[in-house]
Computed example of a mutant assay.
Amino acid sequence: MENRGHEAHPPGGGRLEWIDVARGIGIVAVVVGHVWTRGGLRDAMYSFHMPLFFLLSGILSRPQSVARFAPRQLASQIRPYAAFLILLVVADQIIETMKGGRPIFHDWPHDLLPILLGGSWLRGPFTIFWFVPCLMMARMFFNIGLARWPDPLDRRWAWAILPCLAAAYAVGKFTSLSPLGALAVPMALVLLWTGAAWQRVAWRRWMVAPLALLSLAGLMGLMPTLNMKAADYGWPLLSMGSAVATSLLLFRLSARIAPLAGWAAAVGRASLVIMYLHVAVIHYLSPYFSKPWLLAQALLIPLAAYYLIRSVPAARRIFL
């Protein structure tokens, strides 16, 4: 059980409990990083939390028909993205007006353009909305490569991944504008490939030591942390390498604790709804709760929303 990577990282397809556990751990890290907005705890979460989700998606990636995959991605991801965005825009109009404040989007119809552009144009309760369209675009590009080179360890992948890596570190130097999170797509592609390639690597016990050292360097703040939305990846290769190391170790842990971590799996299954809603909960409730209570609300309210949405067929078709 110790010498094969695929046993710790099962192939994609179906409902894999360890994947849900890893998603659950990842989304808790995301929420913690948004509740504690400065300090060591925030930096530790930012050192790995978003790369973890891209790596997981890469692990689950399999070559698919390009003609079918892209339309299916657009249909399945844009609908809930738009639905949650509209929901929060309407909620912000109501909540801020009731508080006697001014909604974030208040200059109509001019505000329609930044809403449609998304990414770096969205802030406050909408700040996380860069992630899903970025992941969607990266997955579509990555599938084009997989359809051509199904083995991620094929040496020809270097011709695609090395330019992506160079572009990932370059684009953030020239612009901060990121329509629909496109600024992070080059690094997202690198992470998708890394996750897919990791599936083909046999696990060895000696890997724990170098991965743990690299992980701790990021978690302890010994190197600059990450801000994927702004294409800020800290020290070239090292900061992202630390994120990958932490994520891979968490995947090993998730595979081991999956039978006993039903709560984490439940949170993982609701991770997309939590991703969309938790920043809004933090944004509106932060004046009224201490940080530990705010963390609990930012997890429990979206989790309750997920189960409510899942129980109503019409809402499930729109939001999930």
Rank of each mutant, 00 (worst) to 15 (best):
T37L: 15
V66R: 15
S57I: 05
S61Y: 08
L16T: 10
D43G: 09
G26N: 08
A44S: 07
G24S: 00
F54S: 04
A29L: 11
I19A: 11
P51S: 05
W18I: 06
F48R: 06
L16G: 05
S57M: 08
T37D: 14
R68E: 15
I59E: 15
A29P: 11
R23D: 03
G33C: 01
D20H: 00
P51V: 05
M50D: 12
L55C: 00
R62K: 14
S47D: 03
V32L: 08
M45F: 12
T37H: 14
V30H: 08
V30G: 09
R42K: 11
D43C: 08
A29Q: 10
Q64A: 13
L56F: 01
I27H: 07
G33T: 03
A44C: 07
L41I: 05
M45V: 14
V32Y: 04
R62A: 14
G24F: 02
E17R: 15
R68T: 15
A22G: 04
L60S: 09
L60H: 06
H49N: 07
L41T: 04
L56Q: 04
R38G: 11
G40W: 12
E17S: 15
R68Q: 13
F53C: 06
R62N: 13
G58Q: 01
P63G: 07
D43V: 10
A67W: 14
G26A: 10
V31K: 07
G26Y: 06
I59K: 14
D43R: 12
W36E: 00
V30M: 11
L56Y: 01
S65V: 08
P63W: 07
G24E: 01
A22I: 02
A67I: 14
G24Q: 00
R62C: 12
R38I: 11
G33I: 00
R68I: 15
I19T: 13
A44M: 07
V32F: 03
F48P: 10
G26H: 08
D43Y: 13
G33V: 02
G33S: 02
L52D: 04
Y46C: 05
G39D: 00
L56E: 03
L56S: 03
G40A: 14
A44L: 06
R42H: 15
D20P: 01
A22N: 02
F54D: 08
F48Y: 11
I19C: 11
G33M: 00
D43S: 13
L16N: 09
L56I: 07
I25N: 03
S47M: 03
L55P: 00
T37A: 15
Y46D: 06
V30N: 09
A29V: 09
